[in-house]
Nucleic acid binder design. Structure first.
Lengths: 240, 240
DNA sequence: CTTGTGGGATTGTTCAACAATAGCCTAACC
DNA sequence: GGTTAGGCTATTGTTGAACAATCCCACAAG
C-alpha cells in the first residue's frame, strides 16, 4: 500500500519542515505550560479580573492539577507580569497603575519606532501584513465589530514591530500586549478605545507607502501619546 | 527613651520610602527564587557551561532543595532564556548560535538607540553614571584588570538604556546581558573581547557631551556591528 | 483607638510514589 | 553490515499528603 520511499531524501517540497512546525502544537507541552496558557487566556478575556486572588487549592481543583504543577504555571505568569506573587499571601491578577501604562507605552514607542525605521529593509510580505491589518480593522469597523477592530489594531502594531525582523522584539511586543490587556479591561467600551485610532493606522501605512518615514513616526508617536493618556485618564476616573 | 512621634506624619525626610526599598533586600525571597539566582550566577560565571544538563536529582541534592522547588526555579530560568527545557529530557544550559547573537545585538541597537535619543531629556545623574562607567573602564584597563573592563563596559551600555527612564527597558537590557554572557563564555580572552571597544565608549560620551547625537549613534551602531561580528566569528571558529 | 492574642486558613517546602518517556544495550533479522 | 525490534534502566512528569511558617481576622484587654 504505502510507497517505500525515504522521506528525508525525496521531499522536494518542505514537508518535513512543516511537520516539525506542527510538533509543538500537538501534545508536546507539559501540564504546567498548558495551565499557564489557560490562565493567560482567562485573564486576557477578563474572566479573572485584576486583583483576583488565585487560590492554589481552588484553582488546582477546578483545573484538575496538583498544587505543585499549578505553582510552576504561576512562575511563568509572574515572569510575564500578568500576576504578582506576594510572599506567604499568594498570587493575584496584576493591577496596573497609570505609571505602568505610561511605561508600557514608552516601550511601545521604542519597539514600534524600531520597526518603523526598519521598513526600508523589510521583506514585502511584512509590508503586506501591515496593510492587511489596517484593511481588516476598517472592515470590522464597517460591520460594527469593535472587538475585532481591537484585535486588528493590535495585529497592526505587532506587524509594525515585526518589520524589524527580530524574534526577541516580536516576543517583547507579544508579552507587552498581553500585559496591556489588563489595562484595556478597565476601559468602558471597546469602541471608545479603538475607534479613534483607526484613522491613525491608515495614515501611518499611507505615509509609509509614500516614503514619508518621518511623517509616519510623528503620527505614530501622537497615536501612542493619545492612547496612553486616554487609558490613564480612564484609570484615574475609575480609581477615584 | 524613644521619642513618641508618628513616623508616618512627621517624616519630612523620606524615611519610610527608603525603608520600603530595603524590604525586598532582606529575607523576603522564597527558596525557588534564591535557587534561580544561584543558578543564574553559576551559569554567568561559566561554572555551568552551555550544554550542561541540569539533573534534578543531582542539583537538588547539591543545593539541598526538593525537586519541586528546583523545577519552579527552572521555570524562571527558561523564561530568562538561560536554559532550555526539552520535554522528558530535562533542562540544559542554553547554547547560543550566531543567529541568537545577531538577534541579541539587534535588540541592543533598538534599546541603546532609544536611550541615546532620550539623552536630552535625561536627568543629570544618569548622564553622570554614563561618564563614570567609561572612566571606570579606562581605569581598570590601566591596571590590566580585563574582567573589570568587561563589567564596566556592560555598566556603560546599561546606563545608556537607563537614559530612557523606563523600568521595563532596563529589565530587558539586564536580561539581555545575562543571556549575552553565554556567548562571552565562548570567547578566548576577556581582553580581546573588551579592549577594542574602550575607545568607542569614550567616543560616544564625548560626542554626546558635545551635543552630536547623530555622531554618537553612528559610533554606537558601528560598535554593536563589530562586537556582534567578532563574537559570531569566534563561535563559528569554535563550532568547526 | 491602639495593642496583644488565639484560631483558622493558606502558602512554602519537602517527601514518597507512580506513570511515562528517552537512551542504551542486546539480539534477531534481511 | 546495517537495521529493526524488544527490553532494561535512569530520569523526568505529576500527583497526593504531610508539616512548618505565615498571614488574616475576630476578639479581648489596656
Amino acid at each position: 500500500m504505502t510507497q517505500d520511499v525515504d522521506l528525508a531524501r525525496t521531499s522536494g517540497d518542505d514537508t518535513l519542515g512543516r511537520l516539525a512546525a506542527d510538533r509543538d502544537l500537538l501534545g508536546r507541552a507539559g501540564t504546567a505550560q498548558r495551565v499557564a496558557e489557560v490562565l493567560r487566556d482567562r485573564i486576557a478575556e477578563g474572566a479573572l479580573p485584576p486583583g483576583t486572588r488565585l487560590s492554589e487549592q481552588a484553582l488546582g481543583a477546578a483545573l484538575g492539577v496538583s498544587r505543585n504543577t499549578l505553582r510552576e504555571a504561576f512562575r511563568t505568569l509572574v515572569d510575564n507580569r500578568l500576576v504578582v506573587h506576594e510572599m506567604n499571601r499568594g498570587v493575584f491578577v496584576r493591577m496596573l497603575d497609570p505609571d505602568d501604562v505610561t511605561d508600557i507605552y514608552a516601550v511601545r514607542r521604542a519597539l514600534e519606532g524600531t520597526g518603523l525605521r526598519a521598513v526600508c529593509t523589510a521583506p514585502p510580505e511584512r509590508i503586506a501584513a501591515l496593510h492587511a491589518a489596517v484593511a481588516g480593522g476598517e472592515a470590522a469597523a464597517e460591520l460594527g465589530d469593535w472587538a475585532e477592530v481591537g484585535t486588528a489594531d493590535l495585529r497592526f502594531h505587532r506587524a509594525l514591530v515585526a518589520l524589524a525582523g527580530s524574534p526577541r522584539l516580536d516576543e517583547y511586543m507579544t508579552r507587552l500586549i498581553a500585559e496591556l490587556r489588563l489595562a484595556f479591561l478597565a476601559m468602558p467600551s471597546a469602541r471608545a478605545l479603538h475607534e479613534p485610532f483607526l484613522r491613525r493606522n491608515r495614515e501611518i501605512v499611507d505615509l509609509l507607502a509614500g516614503g514619508d518615514f518621518d511623517g509616519a513616526t510623528v503620527v505614530l508617536d501622537r497615536y501612542l501619546d493619545d492612547a496612553c493618556e486616554m487609558i490613564c485618564a480612564a484609570m484615574r476616573m475609575d480609581g477615584a
